[in-house]
Every structure is written in C-alpha cells, then in structure tokens.
Design a protein around this nucleic acid. Sequence first.
DNA 1: AGCACGCCGACT
DNA 2: GTCGGCGTGCTC
Length: 667
Amino acid sequence: MTIPNARFARVVLDSSLPQLDHPFDYAVPENLATEIRVGQRVIVPLRSGNRRSDAFVIELADATEFPGTLSEIESIVSPVPVVPGHLYELARAVADRQAGSVSDVLRLCVPTRYVRVEKSFLEQNPDYLARADSESDVEKRPIAVSPTPAAAGSQATQRLFILDAGGTEQRGAWSAPRWSWSFVERAKDYIARGQSVVCVVPDFRDVSHVEHALAHANLESVTVRVDGDVPSAQRWLAYLRILSGEPLIVVGKRSAVYAPVPRLGLLYLWGEGDDSLVEPHAPYAHARDVALIRQNLTGCDLVLSSFVPSAAVMRLVRMNYLDLSKSSSTRPKIQATDLERGSSDLSQRIPSQVFSAIREALPDGAVLVHVAKPGFASTTRCAQCRERARCSECSGPLRLGARGSVPMCGWCGRMHPTFECRSCGGVSLIAGMSGQSKIAEELGRAFVGARIVVTEASQQMSELPDDRVIVIATPGTEPLARNGYRAVIILDGEVTRSRDDLDTDVHALSAWLTAASFAADDGRIVAVGTGPLLGRVMATRDVDGFVAQSLLDREVLGLPPAVRSAVVEGPTELEPQVRQVLADLPSRAILGPTSTRDSKQRFIVLFDYRNGAEIAKSLRALIVTSAQQSRKRASAQMRSESADQAPSRTTRVTVRMDDTALAHLES
DNA sequence: AGCACGCCGACT
DNA sequence: GTCGGCGTGCTC
C-alpha cells in the first residue's frame, strides 16, 4: 500500500484545556510526508512556537479550510498509530455524550509508551507497521473509519442482557464463578472466527477469575490483561498487540472497554450495575454507556450481565433494545429473616436460624458470613425502634463521620449532639457498624473448635485454607470455595439498606445476591435484615421483575434512569449561566443550587434521553466559557480580598452525566 | 496554561 | 510623547 504524500494533518491536542478540544490543522513538512499516518502521536508548536504540545493525527488531507497561516508538524513521536480512526471516533462520541474532552478520554485509552519495549517489539515483528497500515485504511479518507462490523456475512448482531444466577464451579485446577466459565464458552467462537473479544469487569478479582477460566480453555496465548495492576512496560506491549489486529481476548477493568482491537466481535460487560465501572475522572463515563456507544458504532455483539440488572439496563430490556436471558443453573432458595424490633444486642443480630444453618453446614464444608462494609454504614438508626434517624429540621438522614463524631444531617449540615426519635421518642442512636471482629468473637464462642477467618479488603485470598472454616467477609473480599460454600449467611442487611440514593434497593439486592452467588448449588443461604419486601424478592429470585417495577415507579416520578441527569458543579456565581445556557433547551427540571462541602454550587439537570446530545453540547459550552473566565475571576478575587488569604482554588465547572448516587433526589 | 496584544495612567 | 501595568483573547 502506497501512502500519498499528505500535505496537511488534522490533529487533536493532548491537552485537557476545554477550549483546545477541537481539531487543529497543521502543515506536514516534506521530510515527514511519507512517514506520517493517521493515529500517530506527534509534537506540534502552539502559538508563538515556544510552546509545544503532544497531539494525535486524526486525518490527512490535501487541503485545509483554515484561513490563517499554518504551523508545521514538528516531529513524529513514534511510527505506531496509537489512536486508530475507530478509537478516535469512539472517544469523540463518549466525550460528546459526557460533555467532556476527547483528550480526557484518550488519556484513559492510550498507556504510557515504553520506547525499549516498542523497539524490540517492532524488530521482532517487522511487518507490524505495514499491517497496521492496511488495518486502519491509511489512505486519505475522512476519519470515520469503523472496523468491519462483526456480523458481516454471519448471523445478526446480538444485544443481550444475561441475568446470572451465580454459583461456583471447579474445572481442572481452577475454581471460578459460573459466569466466567460461560463467558469463555462464548468467547471461543469469536476467536475461532478471527475476531477479538473485550471483557470488562468491575474488580481485579474478577479479572483473575476470567484469566483462570481462559487458561483452563487453553486460550492463554490469545489473552491480554490490561489491568492497572499490570506493569507499565507490559501494558505497552499489550497495547501494541491489541492494535495489531490479531484475534485476542482482552480482559480488564473499566478502561478496558476502550481497548482498540480492530475486529471487535464481542463486547462483554460483567457486573454492569457496579459503581466501580464509573470512571472517577473527567469525563466520568460509565463503562456500560461506553459499551453501548461502541456497540452502536461498530455493530459488534454486546453482552451485559450481572446478578441484578441495573434500572438503566432494565429500561433497555423493556424497550427491546436488549434481549433478556436468564442463566438456567439451579440455585438454593434464599431464606430471609428479620431482626426482632427493639433489640440491638448481638444475640439478636444473629438470629437462631443462622446458628442452626452454620451448625448443619460446617461438618460438610465452608461457611461464608457476609457482613456489610464498615464504611458503608454512614447513616444512623434509632437504637430503640430501628427507624432511620432523621434531622429534626429538614428530615434529612443523620450521618456519622468518624467513630464518636457528632451526627450531622446529610442534607442541611446541621449538627445533632442530641437526638430524639420521631416515631418512638428514643434518645440514642446506633450506627450501622459491621464489627467483623465482634461477629468473629461471637461465632467463635458458639462454634468451639471451628476455624474462623476474617478477610480484609487489602489482602487477596483467592483460595480457602481448608474446608471446615467460617469465613467472615465484607463485600468484594470473599474467597471462592471449591464448588461453593455449604452455607452463606448474610448479616447486616439493614446496614446495606441504609445507604441512601436512588438505587438503594437495587444496590442492596446486588450486594446480597453477590454474597449468595458464593453458595454451592445445594448449599443453604440465610439473609438477615433484608426487610419484608426485599426478603420476598430474594426468596422468589424475581429480581428482574422487581427492578422493572422500580423503573416504572421512576417513570411516574420522572426520575433517573427513566430520564437522564447531569450534575453540574462550579463557582458560586454559576446560577445565571446555568439557567441561561439551558434556557431554550427542553430540559425537564433544573434543581438547585445546593452547596457542596467545598462550597461550590451544585445543580441537577433532568432531561429526556432524546435531548441528551443538545444538553451535553450546551453544558460543554458552559465549561468552555467558564474555563476562559476563570482567571479573570481569580484575579478579581485576589484584588478584592486583601491578598494575604489566598484561597486561589481554580473553580472549574464539572459535569457528571447520569451520576449513580443522586442522594439529593430522595424525598 | 502561557503568551501577546492593547488600552489607560504616570513618567523621563 | 511613550513606558509599562494588567485585563482579554487565542492557540491551526
């Protein structure tokens, strides 16, 4: 393939300044004309020539529409096209949806370069660059070059939600969750067809499970792990392989969803409702949304899966955008019990059914006792009647920071050194403390001679020391038992339920069913403190029905995810600008302002799905103008405030689309 | 961000 | 007259 000498290059700058987030044209100097490719990282001069910036070539052309005089590309960083057209296209779409910049997305996708690794890789693969040329259609074409849709010639594209029932299975040397085995079954076919698979999971433990299952199926040689835990030299090597077009199974956490395999056959997202799939940095995209966008752009197959569908996914199922399928494994019934009212001592916290379940199970194998995460329990309850403790002024939830601190209202910030319960007049509070060690102590007394293990979030224990053991674990720390635990006990149900945001119930169900998933198929599961409603859902395992119903409720109330939301935060004088920029747009509501902890203003904008693009565009414009004004404001502040106290925080405007933790909307 | 341009006040 | 302070605007 011959490369025409391109005279002009269109680039995106590798800068997070919002006002620079658009294409720039540069002249290609003659000495670079035959080497330059779409996707390469280049260095370009900016303004006076003293400044320079990294940039990615997104298009080569023979003409430019820029009326001014062009600067020249200064140099090419490496011959490898690290941002192929389809990756730029994805990054652009994600940035547009999230009101963010392309460069912020690309930073998540492209790892740091390792020159030595790259050099030796290119020596060992002499035809690599030529192949990359043909792979990415390097001719002078517009940027929107999507990879060939997976379905070309074969069966129709699948978009699927799989409701997983849980369970652990041992095959060969490895125990792994059942979902990871069925993922491998599915992935094999795509590799056989010469296509690639991307598997995105919430947690590093999940990555390991998938790796084990893949290794068992002899797919190690086509498996690429793109964890943050992989050393960076190795990550760069992995990235080069991903770009090469060889059929691969890429496994990783949230940022793996961007892995730029050229022939993507299947995009698989496990645990689609998990909060850790949200990128905590700008532009705050949820891997599930990125996956939906990517499916739409490439036409690949898409599988989302979890123990409990998120309300967002349920919406897509009800629209028939996703097909619902339920895994057919037989699972034990979940026995839900509640605490007796008015009792707070430990003997009541662990009801008798729990002791008998453990007693029965222990001779045959391991028992998992699942307690809520300690930090999960910031809200408080009346020690007497167990009702949620609420602020006497505004009815907001009372929260505890550090242990022994004064309870504070989560809405208005009022401190409450004393408390009087509204329902029963009780005057003392209990925090939803988990007290793993207290439970360990209690169980140790009850089961003399049993081995008791308390897990910690920091340690990675994937296998059990021996069979007859009681494991006391917080979410995410549970070790796998070979073919599942004989019994799983879920304690602290009421603590999990005390988290307050829109999706409390769905999150609680998800936490409990995750715990339940560790049980053997003929094991026993007892859940304490789920409340009658969720207890019934657990017992019947009608989780999709429950989430569908809660989605219907949201539709009536006009709340996410029946509608979309954007959380806008910025400096105190933000309000007129927010209202102005959204004035002519069809938003449903602009809620706020409320004050954040760091005294910024926060607005919540609610709008319909069909208006998302428009709203995002306007909010983006708000970010750009506020970035241009920020210095003006800062210097004005400096002058008026007698210079000695300088709280010169850069009050940037941030926008988070479809935030999962909208506590403010709860009435 | 960082740098140049330009519009007002104080000056050899 | 013109030197230079610092807002304002732009970066192909």
